[in-house]
Write a protein that binds this DNA or RNA. Structure first.
Lengths: 212, 212
DNA sequence: AATATCACCTGATGG
DNA sequence: CCCATCAGGTGATAT
């Protein structure tokens, strides 16, 4: 999370402007339980046909094979670039180059073979309208699952929670006083989650007032 | 083993004529302990450089990449075709197409990761002089290892060993009486073997007389 | 320097 | 018929 000082009213954004465009966006997402093949280091992401055709910018089918570059942005405003290709026999949509980096960065993992269970987390990706003439936002919920083997707990800070709060507040106070940017790191939650909720729905239900 | 009736003196071959050309052949073989990569379904066989350069027909290095087809014959006179290619960074000799069929047919397997142990068996391959102007025979000892998991014993015949001998002799006798061909199937040994011995050496030490 | 392993792209196959 | 998995070829990297 990056916090920046507000210099004018124009820098204040409402939740509605924050990328998710309300009802216009309804239904424009898909959720897929990741398979072993999707998360293996060996291959890419097999995109369900309907999702690709409905949500992705249309491919130029005169190309052999049809290919395009998809630039997506996650909730932390990190951008990810994927090669989107339509190939194979029978033909199918795949994300190849760039996908494995995303898998490892997000610690995505397939579920056990028996249950093929993936716990969906709160990761949301919007496909940037880079290759469309009409801006088009796509929401993609990516599944996240804890590795089944017991993970080493991240070395938590030797500071107490109170000390950390104080430190963070001090940093924020200093930045505010000087009009400079500062960054707050937080631990992404590592517990399992049973549901994936579209960001807009979450915000609507949680916030009663706008945030800036 | 295929046995055929002898019809004339010209059909009698000495051991020397049986493919292995005595001292001319000395040293023209190599032995390699197969790695996991060599036997995986994923790739080919990584040929030790010295072996490839000394024993294989020379590649045409004007090709990009240099490639040739190697036709080899095993002791049972089965022929196997391998694509021999020199590629990668750094450059190396590989057998690709055809190798995996050979691996599965011969039940080749890498050793345990810990020991990388392969038991060398009595498989000998000669590279046919197909692509050389001067006939050139190459001996290659391929490693064989039992799968470490307990294998189902092959269903042995319900016949006793004595009964089988009698049956085989009867078949042979009938074929000999009628001047027809017959075939004896035998179980390739499945036990581990600590050593690989060149065929010529083995024959020299075991047989005091020629066989036809 | 040689080569074992790996990441990654590919079409084929079959549930 | 979709797509999960597989077999196989490639250069990069580690050993």
């Amino acid at each position: 999370m990056s916090l920046q000082p507000v210099n004018s009213e124009k820098d204040v954004y409402s939740v509605q402007d924050f990328g998710i465009k309300g009802s216009k966006h309804t239904g424009e997402f898909f959720c897929k339980i990741l398979t072993a093949s999707d998360t293996s280091t060996h291959g890419g992401f097999s995109v369900p046909r309907k999702a690709a055709e409905k949500l992705f910018p249309q491919l130029d089918f005169s190309m052999q094979p049809p290919t395009q570059e998809l630039v997506v942005r996650d909730l932390h405003d990190n951008t990810w670039t994927f090669r989107h290709i339509y190939r194979g026999q029978p033909k199918r949509h795949l994300l190849t180059t760039g996908w494995s980096m995303f898998v490892s960065a997000k610690k995505l993992a397939a579920g056990a073979n028996i249950f093929n269970l993936i716990v969906v987390s709160n990761l949301v990706i919007r496909v940037l309208p880079q290759l469309c003439s009409v801006p088009k936002y796509v929401t993609l919920l990516a599944g996240v699952r804890r590795a089944s083997r017991q993970q080493k707990a991240l070395p938590s800070s030797v500071l107490s929670a109170d000390s950390m709060h104080i430190g963070i507040l001090a940093a924020a106070g200093h930045a505010a006083a000087n009009g400079s940017q500062f960054t707050v790191f937080y631990n992404p939650r590592t517990c399992r989650s049973e549901f994936g909720v579209p960001l807009a729905k979450y915000r609507k239900s949680v916030y009663s007032t706008q945030i800036s």
